[in-house]
């Protein structure tokens, strides 16, 4: 088995920038992602960290212009995505890799029935007749907990949670090997969130799908992910197994994310948000992008952006402070 075949997804040095009239927006600045079969990777970070752009570039759906995608390697299930002609890429989308989008209110086409929208992928990828595809669409609806008889209804006749179920049904219709879920529960009520997550976990197990879960909700990560990658300003600043990142947090930014969560045991405690704002992606600082907001920042942080370094077999961090022997963050000390 060659190196790439061990991974459903292998990305090396992905760079995405948007060249606009107002300047170059550096959305992603060299990230590597490796995801094993049946694994779930949590991609965590604030709004604007480049999570969605990363997902879109895996599907080669970054709008161009203004988007420019550069990448040393992009393999899905051993297939070299970068060299595929457009019509071959269309065969990959929806079949090998599917995507669940953030806002179910806007991703369903208002003028087609939900049945037709599910059936469309089946017609394209499984070459089913329209009639057979519609029948399969009904069973897909049943699978996500919607009566099949509602297949000939339109998106406006469904609630938000139901719509997201429809989106999940579309994404899973052709049993993809890799599912990219871009904040699939952000637009939903908390009560519905749990249902949708539960449904996704079940279906993922049923179809042996690998998954990238993009979210800013650490609770969701803890629930569904095997691995975590924390993104900040277009870079991965810490990645490792769920246990590594949650219990042996290394990066000050990851620590900040945990500190921003409310503490149920001590409700009088003030929330501790990370001070400052995400840097402007058209004008990133020369050194570590997090340095201006970081409590541990020193002169050393201002030179070059720190590279990811392995701390253990599974855990790595991009932080210059670890050049100093004995450095540890506050949360690390507690754990």
């Amino acid at each position: 088995m060659s190196e790439t075949e061990k991974h459903i997804l292998d990305v090396k040095n992905l760079v995405v920038r948007y060249e606009t009239e107002d300047g170059i927006v550096r959305a992603i600045n060299g990230i590597d992602i490796q995801l094993g079969y049946k694994q779930t990777l949590g991609l965590v970070g604030e709004t604007g960290a480049g999570k969605t752009t990363a997902a879109l570039s895996i599907l080669r759906l970054v709008p161009s212009p203004p988007g420019v995608v550069e990448c040393d390697l992009l393999h899905i299930d051993g297939l070299d995505i970068l060299s595929l002609p457009d019509h071959k890429m269309e065969e990959v989308r929806g079949k090998e890799v599917s995507m669940i989008f953030q806002d179910p209110m806007t991703v369903l086409n208002p003028v087609f029935t939900v049945g037709e929208q599910i059936a469309e992928s089946l017609e394209i990828h499984e070459h089913l007749s329209h009639k057979d595809a519609l029948q399969r669409a009904e069973s897909m609806l049943e699978l996500v907990g919607i009566p099949g008889s509602r297949a000939n209804e339109y998106p406006h006749q469904f609630s938000g949670g139901m719509k997201q179920r429809v989106v999940i049904a579309i994404a899973l219709a052709c049993s993809p090997k890799l599912l990219i879920a871009d904040e699939p529960t952000t637009a939903l009520d908390v009560t519905i969130q749990a249902q949708v997550l539960e449904l996704m976990s079940q279906l993922k197990d049923k179809y042996d799908t690998s998954m990238i879960m993009i979210t800013h909700d650490l609770g969701i990560v803890a629930e569904v992910c095997d691995k975590v990658a924390v993104m900040y300003a277009g870079r991965i600043v810490e990645q490792g197994l769920l246990e590594d990142v949650f219990n042996h947090t290394l990066h000050p930014y990851t620590e900040g994310l945990f500190n921003s969560l409310p503490n149920v045991k001590n409700r009088t405690a003030m929330l501790k948000p990370i001070r400052g704002l995400m840097p402007d992606p058209t004008n990133l600082p020369s050194g570590c992008a997090f340095a201006p907001r970081c409590n541990y920042a020193t002169e050393a942080c201002l030179g070059e952006p720190p590279a990811l370094r392995a701390v253990s077999d599974t855990h790595s961090v991009a932080c210059a402070a670890y050049n100093t022997p004995g450095f540890h963050i506050e949360k690390g000390r507690d754990a």
Partner: peptide, 25 residues
């Protein structure tokens, strides 16, 4: 609109995205 991105993510060809999904709307 997002639903065109969704259609592309399903593997619908660009021609069909425009002629079917976009035009009808």
């Amino acid at each position: 609109q997002d639903y065109l991105l969704m259609a592309r993510a399903k593997g619908v060809s660009e021609r069909k995205v425009i002629r079917k999904h976009a035009l009808k709307n």
